[in-house]
């Protein structure tokens, strides 16, 4: 599965558009991580627990989007966009969407 956040993929030609595909997830970290984040807020610096939370959420949402694209018979997703929203404290909703397409190498046409 080819993923890009540009509208085209150099060296490939879009043969067929399969439409919008999307994936989302709402995740949270256990209370220990939230407490550690509280301490982090005193001394500053990166909150690795929450960075991890975003990474995991993004991976899961992307996986769901790819599954959706595969179901449609696409072999690439172009113009991928990420979006987040606030649900409650310590949790993140991550939403990823893109256009599923069938691409072929330009030489093959």
């Amino acid at each position: 599965m080819l993923l890009t956040n540009t509208e085209t993929i150099p060296g490939y030609r879009i043969k067929e558009v399969k439409g919008l595909v999307q994936g989302n997830t709402v995740r949270a970290k256990h209370i220990g991580r939230d407490i550690m984040a509280g301490f982090r807020n005193l001394i500053g610096g990166e909150v690795s627990g929450y960075t991890e939370l975003l990474t995991e959420s993004r991976e899961q949402a992307t996986e769901r989007m790819i599954d959706h694209a595969e179901d449609l018979g696409a072999n690439a997703v172009v113009n991928v966009r990420f979006s987040t929203s606030a649900i409650t404290q310590g949790a993140a909703e991550l939403y990823v969407y893109g256009t599923a397409v069938v691409v072929v190498k330009e030489t093959e046409t």
Partner: peptide, 28 residues
Amino acid sequence: RIDTADITGASTAPAKRAASMACVLASA
């Protein structure tokens, strides 16, 4: 593309309870 997230729920919780954090999500 650079986007921000709101993990601490500053927009959902009373402002005083939410911790200040910068949550950034970037893609390219």
